Simulated assay, not measured.
Amino acid sequence: MELPENLVGEKWAFVQLPFSAVQEEISSLDTNLVFGASLDLDLLGIEIDDKTLIPGLAVASSRAKPLAAWMNGLEVCSIEADLSRGRLILSVGISGRYIYATYNKTPETTSEAEAWEAAKKECGGLHFLAIQGDLDSDDCVGFWLLLDLPPPPV
């Protein structure tokens, strides 16, 4: 589906953070009143070293707080790169999927998207979505820890 207008960011970038920095962002969800959600990694049986780089998607918007608030109303599950079509797919809830962003398919962008997907696989599917006022900022107004999961058996 097409992404509702209120969920569109102005810029985005593939990024990576050490797991220790991801944990700091997760702790800010309660203490700094940041929008977002975490995962119970212990319950999921996921063990990650503090220095492991976790791939993510940083989204910048001049209306970052309203964007994060709207995003917080969704059950954000994962983001994946659709390499064949040059777009990012946002999975929400049980079966919702949105075209979250598009990019021009060039050898460079395809390589970057492939590397991002490979980094997710290296972390067992763990990745994140960060919403910021500016891509160069260290502050997030929204942070979601996400996990790629295989579809359930039928």
Score class of each variant (00 low, 15 high):
28 S>C: 14
29 L>G: 11
30 D>S: 10
30 D>P: 02
31 T>N: 04
32 N>H: 12
35 F>H: 15
35 F>C: 12
36 G>Y: 09
38 S>M: 11
38 S>H: 10
38 S>Y: 10
39 L>Q: 09
40 D>L: 06
40 D>T: 00
41 L>V: 03
41 L>T: 05
42 D>K: 13
42 D>Y: 07
42 D>S: 08
45 G>T: 06
45 G>P: 07
47 E>Y: 12
47 E>F: 10
48 I>F: 11
48 I>G: 06
48 I>W: 12
48 I>V: 11
48 I>T: 12
49 D>K: 15
51 K>R: 11
51 K>T: 07
51 K>P: 02
52 T>P: 01
52 T>K: 10
53 L>C: 03
53 L>T: 02
54 I>A: 03
54 I>V: 06
56 G>S: 06
56 G>L: 03
56 G>A: 04
57 L>N: 02
57 L>R: 02
57 L>A: 04
59 V>Y: 00
61 S>H: 02
63 R>V: 00
64 A>C: 10
65 K>L: 08
65 K>T: 03
66 P>D: 02
66 P>Q: 04
66 P>L: 09
66 P>R: 02
66 P>Y: 06
68 A>G: 00
68 A>Q: 01
69 A>Q: 00
70 W>H: 03
70 W>C: 04
71 M>T: 04
72 N>G: 05
72 N>W: 12
72 N>F: 11
74 L>G: 02
75 E>L: 13
76 V>D: 00
77 C>D: 01
77 C>G: 03
77 C>R: 01
78 S>F: 04
79 I>E: 10
79 I>N: 13
80 E>T: 04
80 E>Q: 05
80 E>R: 02
81 A>Q: 07
81 A>H: 09
81 A>W: 09
81 A>F: 10
83 L>C: 06
83 L>E: 07
83 L>T: 02
84 S>W: 07
85 R>A: 10
87 R>L: 04
89 I>F: 13
91 S>P: 01
92 V>I: 15
92 V>N: 13
95 S>K: 15
97 R>N: 07
98 Y>K: 13
98 Y>A: 10
99 I>R: 15
100 Y>T: 11
100 Y>V: 11
101 A>H: 10
102 T>C: 14
103 Y>F: 14
104 N>I: 01
105 K>Q: 12
105 K>A: 10
106 T>H: 12
108 E>V: 13
109 T>P: 12
109 T>V: 13
109 T>H: 14
110 T>Y: 15
111 S>Y: 07
112 E>D: 08
112 E>Q: 11
115 A>F: 11
116 W>S: 12
